[in-house]
Structures are given as C-alpha cells and as structure tokens.
Design a protein around this nucleic acid. Sequence first.
DNA 1: TTACATAGTGTTATATTATAACAATTCTAA
DNA 2: TTAGAATTGTTATAATATAACACTATGTAA
Lengths: 133, 133
Amino acid sequence: MTRMHKENNLSKNQQIIFDLIDRSPEPLKAYTILYNVQKKGINAPPQVYRALDKLVEIGKIHKIESKNAFVACKNSDCEISKATAFSICESCEVVDEISDVKLSKYLSSFNHKKGMKFKRFNLEFFGLCKKCK
Amino acid sequence: MTRMHKENNLSKNQQIIFDLIDRSPEPLKAYTILYNVQKKGINAPPQVYRALDKLVEIGKIHKIESKNAFVACKNSDCEISKATAFSICESCEVVDEISDVKLSKYLSSFNHKKGMKFKRFNLEFFGLCKKCK
DNA sequence: TTACATAGTGTTATATTATAACAATTCTAA
DNA sequence: TTAGAATTGTTATAATATAACACTATGTAA
C-alpha cells in the first residue's frame, strides 16, 4: 500500500525524519525527533534510531558526537560523510558544517606515523561564534 | 583523616580512577571503570563521572566521543586537552593519541570563514591499524 | 587558630541515550 | 511471482549520564 519514497532513495520513516532534521536550525537529539514525529506514526525509539543510522550511513545527515545530536549534511560534495568538520559555539550551541577544501584535503591525506591508513575522520571545533563573542 | 593526594593535584577518587585509565591499554567506559573501582569504595556513577569530568578538565584524560570512553593523555605537551587528535581502528578498536606538531599547529590556527574563533578542537580518525589491514 | 569558601565525597533516585529481539510488511530484482 | 533484502512496528531493557541533597576535607586569609 503506502509506497516508499524511492524517487530519492528514502523510505517513509527516513524521509519524515530527514525532513525534520533538514528543516531544523539546530542539531536534533534522537528523543526530540521522536517527540516531533509521533504525530506521524513513529512511536518508538528503534524506529528513530534505525532511520538515523541509515541516514548517517548514506551521508544525508551527520552525528555531532560531542552533543549526541544530528544535523543534515549541507555539503553536497562531502564524500558520503567520510570527512566531516563542524564548528560548535559553546555559548549559543550553534553548529555549522565546515566546507573547506584545503582542510578536507589536508586531513584526508594525513598519514599516521604508526602506519594506519585512514578511511574517515570527524573534526569538531569549539569556540564562540560571531554573535556570542 | 585520609589526606588528599595533593602532591599531584588529584583527590583520592580522581587518583584511583586516573590510575586505572592510565594503566589500561584501551579506552575505558564509565561503567567499566565503576565496576573496577568498587573494591576501592567507589560505589556509584556520580563519583565516577565527577572524577572523569575533573580529569578531562585538567587534561589528564580525554574522552573519545565516538566511543563514550576515556583514555589517559599520552601527550604531555598538548595544551591541556585543547587540541586533541586520535586514531581509532575500526576492527580491533585500538585508540592512539596522535601527537603531530604540524597537524596540531595547522588546526589550531585554522580560522572559520564565518568569523568564529576556535578555542579547542577534537579530531577522530577512523581506519584499520597496521595489524588489522 | 579559627572560620569561611571551595572542592570533594557518598548516596538515592531518575533522566537520557541506545539497542535486543521478534513478528510482520514492503520493496526489488530475477 | 516469488525469494531475499530492507523496512516497519512493538515491547522490553541496556547503557550512559545527571539531579539533588547532606556531609567532609582542604586551602587560605583574617
């Protein structure tokens, strides 16, 4: 019956949750998402976490690890969330995804002395944003 | 009564918990720490989390955000945990603190286009370590 | 030395974040 | 059209983290 929204590769729950995150001016936590989609028939944590996991996996959203919160990817050419960088204001908590080609290239080509080859990185900068400083 | 171990600025609980983390070859989670220090009279989560908070604050340990786990600082000249970088093996889960002066300088002087001034960053690289690849 | 502020401790309870497990449905590709 | 894969719905529970409060220890400045 209810068709999946395969035109953009997202299932029903994935689309509902992505839309919510994408429209949010700030990172959303899993349970905040849950409360906001209960009217759409998503009732339980696993439904939310499953959609989040998938959205992270395909690079539509990113997890801000220091906040346990999720933002939509604003960086269409980030290689499927393999190289993420964020700025986080410690006062107003605003989060921005950083799209800096030089930074991204520098880190993507960084090689560990101990012989480890990196596939992915996540960088979080903290400070005060323009407004707050 | 029991003197605090002020010779090195750590209180009793802080010292017990730091020693455990420092001796561990891998990042430790808060409840793993709790189970391991109960014989020393630390009984409840808040005691562990308070010590962890303080140890992070003074730079003796770092939190690996993607794992909710803690490691001792191996990098005596990292400016009190203001600039941290780690390599994490996705297979064996080994974590190493990266001490790379060039990397550290590059990131510490990185300036956001949007006018934010950074005070601190945390970088986590993921991949396969020498053994696992 | 006292007394006061600050930091640390111990404790119970609870909040927050995340997953296990299982049955059913929907989608996709052959 | 049918089998495998992905998704959904659901209940229960695990794992991570903090609130709140009473108390003790410590450092320091009068």
